[in-house]
């Protein structure tokens, strides 16, 4: 007769393995060198430029941002989950502004994947986004990612001297809880 305890144990192990597969599916590999080398259009808004610490110029690369950590949100105006998550993302930015130790150390940047400047602006105005959003109509960011971009995706990037960067955290899918996400990000400052 089959030992049901052993069978039960096998089922539990396989269930856990199944959940493990989920995590694997969500893992995203980012080529930091390619990401550091991508050129984006600078925000047109002067306050946004100032927030990112960018000098005048039409283009910039991520390592030029003046911060220790940069949270890059890959979104699309057309993405319903990005729309649903907009409140939590705005809240994350507000939380960062409220903590003096984090305000200047951690910055945020939204990249509208496949979106034109017009489309990015529709998203900005609809959800009253107060951190910089820039368009990426040509899907340039895709070059740095191992898998097809899913929106929203968050890349937390550590900016180091010499124009380098290191991707310290990736999250595919909505953040839902801004406070919890912020704790994970703050831990990467150490």
């Amino acid at each position: 007769m089959v030992n049901m305890r052993i069978v039960g144990a096998i089922i539990i192990v396989l269930m856990l393995a199944g959940f493990g597969l989920c995590d694997v599916a969500k893992t995203l590999s980012v080529n930091a060198d390619i990401l550091a080398d991508l050129k984006f259009n600078s925000p047109e808004n002067l306050a946004e430029k100032k927030y990112l610490g960018l000098s005048d110029g039409k283009n910039f690369r991520l390592p030029q941002v003046k911060a220790r950590l940069l949270i890059v949100q890959l979104f699309s105006m057309y993405c319903p989950i990005c729309q649903r998550d907009a409140h939590a993302v705005n809240e994350l930015h507000s939380l960062l502004q409220k903590v003096p130790g984090l305000r200047d150390e951690v910055k945020m940047l939204g990249i509208g994947v496949g979106n034109t400047p017009y489309e990015v602006n529709v998203f900005r105005e609809k959800f009253k986004v107060s951190f910089p959003l820039i368009p990426d109509d040509n899907f340039a960011i895709q070059k740095a990612l191992s898998d097809e971009i899913r929106t929203p995706t968050f890349l937390v990037v550590k900016l180091t001297a010499g124009g380098k960067l290191e991707v310290v955290l990736t999250k595919v899918g909505e953040i839902k809880e801004s406070g919890e996400f912020l704790k994970k990000i703050a831990a990467k400052l150490n």
Partner: peptide, 15 residues
């Protein structure tokens, strides 16, 4: 049972 969690996984991710 093993396949079910994958469904949860995808439903909780992106658009």
């Amino acid at each position: 049972i093993v396949l079910a969690p994958r469904g949860v996984c995808w439903a909780s991710t992106p658009a």
